[in-house]
Simulated scan of single mutants.
Amino acid sequence: MDAATAAVDEVDPLALDRQLCFALAVASRLVIGTYKPILEPMGLTHPQYLVMLALWEHEPLALSEIAALVRLEPATLSPLVKRLEAAGLVTRERSPRDERQLALRLTDAGRRLRDQAERVPEQVVASLGVEVDDLVRLHAELSTLIQRISPGPGGQPAEGAPGRDERLATSD
């Protein structure tokens, strides 16, 4: 590679390794992959783990509430919840807040699973081989990014978030 080609590669806005979307996608797959062998003995997939986390924190919850918390579409959650129900971890019953809605509640087995799940974060940190302080910092930065770019009501950027043309649209 000659010097001119190297100079173009250094500033190429379309270079794959400069794309934020690529770095986030690869990091996401690798981190979620780290959870798989940790969650398998518990009988959970990563998306099911997220639903269980939401329920352990906020039980009972309507499907729409879970969808908002874990940021998945209700249609995506329905089969996942059916599998959790078949596994005996959750039940569906009328919501105490709105009898027109069904709410998910943990079963005794679902509540007991929390004891085992309390070891998951520590196991993930050990598997990643990254300092806890670095992970805390990364989590804070990602949470800030999510808050800034998440749409508010009506698909508009959240209050205080930059407009669409002001958002990060290119590589980092």
Score class of each variant (00 low, 15 high):
residue 51 V to D: 04
residue 166 E to L: 02
residue 128 L to D: 14
residue 166 E to Y: 02
residue 71 R to T: 00
residue 109 A to Y: 02
residue 36 K to A: 14
residue 12 D to E: 07
residue 13 P to L: 04
residue 51 V to R: 03
residue 35 Y to R: 02
residue 11 V to Y: 12
residue 157 P to N: 03
residue 56 W to M: 03
residue 127 S to L: 13
residue 148 R to N: 02
residue 142 L to Q: 13
residue 42 M to N: 13
residue 50 L to A: 14
residue 48 Q to C: 09
residue 107 T to Y: 06
residue 33 G to R: 01
residue 35 Y to L: 04
residue 17 D to A: 01
residue 49 Y to M: 13
residue 82 K to D: 11
residue 127 S to P: 05
residue 150 S to W: 00
residue 163 G to S: 01
residue 33 G to W: 04
residue 122 E to R: 14
residue 131 E to G: 08
residue 46 H to P: 15
residue 132 V to Q: 08
residue 137 R to T: 15
residue 108 D to A: 14
residue 134 D to E: 10
residue 82 K to A: 12
residue 1 M to K: 03
residue 74 P to G: 03
residue 92 R to E: 15
residue 115 D to Q: 09
residue 150 S to A: 12
residue 86 A to K: 12
residue 89 L to P: 11
residue 3 A to C: 01
residue 79 P to D: 08
residue 77 L to P: 00
residue 141 E to S: 09
residue 51 V to Y: 02
residue 66 I to T: 00
residue 33 G to M: 02
residue 138 L to Y: 15
residue 167 R to L: 00
residue 102 L to K: 14
residue 82 K to E: 13
residue 3 A to W: 11
residue 112 R to Q: 11
residue 10 E to M: 12
residue 55 L to T: 04
residue 117 A to M: 15
residue 28 S to K: 10
residue 64 S to P: 00
residue 125 V to P: 10
residue 18 R to Q: 01
residue 89 L to S: 09
residue 90 V to Q: 00
residue 22 F to C: 07
residue 150 S to R: 08
residue 21 C to I: 14
residue 72 L to H: 06
residue 153 P to M: 11
residue 134 D to Y: 05
residue 84 L to F: 11
residue 62 A to G: 02
residue 153 P to F: 08
residue 53 L to N: 10
residue 71 R to V: 00
residue 168 L to M: 01
residue 68 A to Q: 08
residue 83 R to D: 12
residue 149 I to R: 03
residue 57 E to P: 00
residue 138 L to S: 14
residue 152 G to V: 00
residue 86 A to D: 13
residue 146 I to K: 11
residue 137 R to I: 13
residue 96 P to S: 10
residue 111 R to V: 06
residue 118 E to F: 08
residue 169 A to P: 01
residue 56 W to Y: 05
residue 49 Y to Q: 10
residue 130 V to A: 14
residue 109 A to P: 07
residue 137 R to C: 10
residue 35 Y to D: 09
residue 146 I to D: 07
residue 58 H to A: 06
residue 59 E to I: 07
residue 11 V to H: 13
residue 48 Q to D: 08
residue 40 E to Y: 03
residue 26 V to Y: 02
residue 69 L to Y: 05
residue 34 T to M: 00
residue 2 D to V: 07
residue 29 R to S: 03
residue 139 H to D: 15
residue 4 A to R: 03
residue 127 S to N: 15
residue 140 A to C: 08
residue 89 L to T: 10
residue 88 G to E: 12
residue 53 L to K: 13
residue 144 T to D: 10
residue 131 E to L: 09
residue 102 L to R: 10
